[in-house]
Design a protein around this nucleic acid. Structure first.
Length: 543
DNA sequence: AGGTCCGTTGCCAAG
DNA sequence: CCTTGGCAACGGACC
């Protein structure tokens, strides 16, 4: 019974550059490679606003299953296989340690609060029962704790101050162990093979699926393809990318592979450095591809070192702002029924593909929060958190804090136009028409503001605004002015207050701005009851 | 203290 | 097609 190791996979779904796996193989007679399918994440929720579980959309579940299938195949190529179990890891893992007489438990270190709590519990249990625990940092290039220590114990809150304290990056390991000794038996434990969506209880799936399949093999292929074009890599400047490019996205789309650890960020980083050394000139952080990887590190570091990072109340870095609590506005945004085609098309892409270009995320996040709707960033964060295949807790929260001008970024008067922003990249409206086929025959001069099309044009296009596609839910000019006034008042309150503004003070602002009616001009004047019903109907009906 | 510079990705009109 | 300047105007870093 000597020398049994349990390799617990969570993120880090790869064999290459996987220090936890290397440790598991060191001196082990048998390596049990385990992934726990947690119903808390994966159980179908028929009440959810789109297919998936309560917490995870169908695309990310599908992506995860792809990762697991590939991991299993790759483990098999090294003489092992992936063992799947259903349940809560906090209950499952300690049971396995006991039943399989495990001597060493290995898993990748995870900085997210939910994971830390879970892992600390399991770590304590393991140590108490004499199991050696090994959890190396390999999801990020740097260990957030080291960065904070190097910064004098303070969390760096600007990208530049963050970059100044960065030392040498850690180097990736190789392709992984060539042979991973398999278990002899499972001691009566019922281990499963990788399920499909139907096995998890998902039925009648007819929505479009993400074009990005999960897995280490796919991820490494994508990495190689991205690095092949040295000019493209060395000239990459994120803000110059085209958010409406969808047949061939303007970025690498390696984010979901980094999220699940199919591709090691350290491998990506070191490959980038090699490429940079082979070219005459190349772009630099923050806009370069290297810069994108460092943004990821930045948000992981701030997310790790900031209490209540994912909340407004109780966060030391988050501006206290009297966001509105309007479920109708939120639902219209979430379901792509705002009446602004650029916003709605991006939200449909999110729902159908689980992915949007970074700038499209900016546009819709700005629209929901400080730009037009003044809905709480935490609500938008939750929608992204559920639907994005690349959703990372730290990065998602960090970007919502940024876009809502709650932290990191304060120039709230810089607003993305829901009409002209998309138009400037895609004047023909190809992106909009692809994701909102109902607008297919609307002439391009009206495609970003179809309510302005004359009745005759709407009729010819078989798209009557208010019937086939909604009126804009807010008047951008009016709503945006109200948002900026409210932001100014809230900022003043945050500045004046010795600490944070009180809930009472924020409520006063809410009364002053929230009930003025400014947000609802068009909705109240032009929406007939039938339009309201139309909005509540399913997204797929807008075809 | 107070001024100035700058910050991954605003919009619009003018040239 | 591009760049440039006006617009309005926050706050951290640095002098």
């Amino acid at each position: 019974m000597e020398g049994r190791a349990l390799m617990w996979f969570r993120k880090g779904l790869r064999l290459h550059d996987n220090p936890a796996l290397e440790h598991a193989c060191e001196g082990a007679k048998n390596v049990y490679a385990v992934f726990v399918l947690d119903p808390w994440f994966l159980a179908p929720d028929p009440c959810a606003p789109s297919p998936g579980s309560a917490r995870v959309g169908i695309n990310r579940i599908q992506f995860l299953l792809g990762c697991l299938k590939d991991l299993d195949l790759r483990l098999k190529s090294r003489g092992n296989q992936l063992l799947l179990l259903h349940g809560n890891p906090v209950e499952i893992i300690p049971g396995l340690l006991h039943k399989w007489s495990i001597k060493k438990l290995c898993f990748e270190y995870d900085t997210e609060p939910y994971s830390l709590q879970r892992d600390n519990f399991i770590k304590e249990h393991a140590t108490e029962t004499g199991v050696e625990v090994c959890s190396p940092v390999s999801h990020t290039i740097y260990n957030p704790e080291d960065i904070i220590a190097k910064n004098g114990g303070m969390v760096p809150l600007t990208y530049q101050s963050f970059c100044r304290v960065l030392g040498k990056p850690s180097n990736p390991l190789g392709d992984g162990p060539s042979h991973i000794p398999p278990p002899i038996d499972y001691e009566g434990v019922n281990v499963l093979s990788v399920p499909c969506l139907e096995d998890l209880g998902y039925k009648n799936l007819n929505e479009e699926f993400s074009p990005f399949p999960g897995g280490e093999t796919e991820g490494l292929k994508r990495l190689e393809e991205s690095l092949k074009d040295k000019n493209w890599v060395s000239e990459f400047e994120k803000p110059k990318g085209d958010p409406t490019a969808f047949m061939k996205p303007a970025t690498t789309v390696l984010s979901p592979y980094l999220k699940f650890g199919c591709v090691s960020s350290r491998l990506f980083y070191s490959r980038l450095k090699v490429l940079y050394s082979q070219v005459k000139s190349y772009t630099k952080p923050p806009v370069s591809l290297e810069g994108q990887l460092l943004w990821r590190e930045f948000f992981y570091t701030v997310g790790y070192g900031t209490p209540n990072f994912d909340r407004m109340v109780g966060s030391p870095i988050c501006k206290q702002i009297p966001w509105k609590d309007d479920e109708d506005l939120l639902a219209a945004w979430r379901d792509g029924h705002t009446g602004y085609p650029w916003i709605d098309a991006a939200m449909v892409q999110l729902r159908k593909w689980g992915w949007m270009h970074h700038l499209a995320r900016h546009a819709v996040a700005c629209f929901l929060t400080r730009g037009d709707m003044f809905v709480h960033w935490e609500k938008g964060r939750d929608v992204f958190d559920r639907l994005l295949i690349d959703d990372d807790w730290s990065i998602n929260n960090g970007n919502w804090l940024w876009l809502s001008a709650s932290a990191f970024f304060a120039q709230y008067h810089r607003i993305y136009s829901p009409i002209t922003f998309g138009q400037k990249y895609d004047p023909e409206g190809k992106f909009v028409k692809y994701f909102l086929p109902v607008l297919q025959d609307i002439p391009k001069q009206y495609i970003y503001a179809p309510w302005k099309a004359p009745d005759e044009v709407q009729k010819n296009a078989n798209c009557i605004i208010g019937k086939d596609y909604p009126y804009p839910i807010v008047d951008h000019v009016v709503a945006n002015k109200a948002c900026r006034e409210c932001m100014a008042a809230a900022y003043q309150l945050n500045k004046d207050a010795t600490g944070k503004p009180t809930a009472e003070q924020l409520d006063l602002l809410k009364v002053k701005f929230g009930q003025s009616g400014n947000f609802n001009v068009i909705r109240n004047s032009k929406s007939s009851p039938s339009v309201k019903r139309q909005r509540q109907s399913k997204l797929t009906e807008y075809k």
